[in-house]
Amino acid sequence: MISFLLGAAGFVLMTVALALVVILRRPAEVDHMMAAQLLGTGGGAILLLLATATETPPIVDVALLLALFASFAAVAFVRSAPGQESEV
């Protein structure tokens, strides 16, 4: 079971990494915004899998913070996207 969960965590990490590489190479900033959101979700999944695999429940709290801060970063993105600064 443990190695399955770890394998799943590794698999998710790989897909996230693949997506990150592509996203961050695109010029559009909107695409970049997706990167952080992706990591909020994917990172959360990885941490949850690690928490169960290593039987360390406090890791779940890290996932909780990641989930909380993922949207926070996105709000900061949107606020700092072009078209905002002139109107303040």
Binding site: A35, A36, L66, F69
Partner: peptide, 9 residues
């Protein structure tokens, strides 16, 4: 930002 999230892992 992405880097920071990865570091926590």
């Amino acid at each position: 930002v992405v880097y920071g999230l990865l570091l926590s892992i």
